[in-house]
Design a protein around this nucleic acid. Structure first.
Lengths: 164, 164
DNA sequence: ATACAATAATTGCAAATACAAATAAATCCT
DNA sequence: AGGATTTATTTGTATTTGCAATTATTGTAT
């Protein structure tokens, strides 16, 4: 399939830089990745807003539901939210009684964040919607292609993660 | 790697639900997408900082290099940067003499943003670095797999874009 | 044990961001 | 043509973010 790029070749104004210079964004993986991710994020931001949540809040909750009570550092790594930012996101969740912070007994520097029952309930109410959105995103892909995509994304992540 | 997995099973608040409940983040495409994108973005943020640029600034410049002089609306769509935010990003680029704003002659509501010669030069100096980072991200993938990934990402984007 | 570096989380603060309102110009309608 | 409507962009403002500094605790070396 030829690329369905929105770039009209016969643009009237301004010179184009077709063959020379450019990055060819339509072929540039970081661009394609960001674009796809941003679209899904934008859509889901609206969903969680109906539950009084921001997207970062939801991401934290999803991680806690999946991994169980966790330390800030762990949540930060899994959500890609900076710890300092995360600290305030958790403030918000705590204020809404969706999570509790508790000092770790084994290491008093650490904090253990856990969903409350309300937090679990809210998360479980949103999860089916999240899955529906995922289905929408993948609606044009066969099951095999979906698995292929997941695998490729994991490998790209690994390659980048090996840098730090 | 090797996560601190400090999940104590006998916890009172927020039990773990292995097979049930959770979203299985490791299988959840929006998560994988965001994670891979965030890693690349983080890495490249450091690169462009050496050029006195933020990542959004760089994205705008890359679009302008690729598409030629463009309107705000167009740049906003291509970069997924909100127009109001974009307006201030362009302010910054203009202050650095990397772009110029000019009123469109055909439609005086619109603004045409164009790279200056300096802007072109800076962009062209960063592009090879961008390509190197892309190569790193894709270092584990064959050429065929890379093409596959691009195609899948385009199709995911299309499916989401068809919602609005 | 005692000082010294490393780790976990929070907080201060400046910069970046998003939403809504304002401004300005083109298009539509009758 | 003239008033209402839509479109393109900018600005006001409250919120969010990220970096650096701070606090508290643990690990380590002597």
């Amino acid at each position: 399939m030829s690329d369905s790029d929105a770039t009209a070749p016969g643009d009237t104004i301004g010179e184009r830089h077709e063959s020379t210079g450019g990055l060819e964004l339509g072929e540039y993986v970081p661009y394609l990745l960001n674009r796809a991710g941003a679209k899904i994020a934008a859509a889901f931001t609206e969903v969680v807003r109906d539950y009084g949540l921001t997207l970062p809040m939801w991401r934290v909750m999803a991680v806690l539901r999946d991994d169980g009570p966790s330390r800030m550092r762990h949540i930060s790594e899994r959500t890609t939210i900076e710890v300092s930012t995360l600290s305030r996101v958790v403030d918000g969740l705590e204020k809404r009684s969706l999570v509790v912070r508790r000092r770790e007994t084994s290491d008093a520097r650490s904090v253990r964040v856990a969903l409350t029952q309300t937090g679990i309930d809210v998360t479980d109410r949103i999860i089916p919607i999240a899955k529906r959105y995922e289905s929408t995103a993948l609606s044009d892909l066969s099951d095999a292609e979906t698995e292929q995509l997941k695998s490729l994304l994991r490998r790209v992540y690994q390659s980048m993660a090996s840098l730090d």
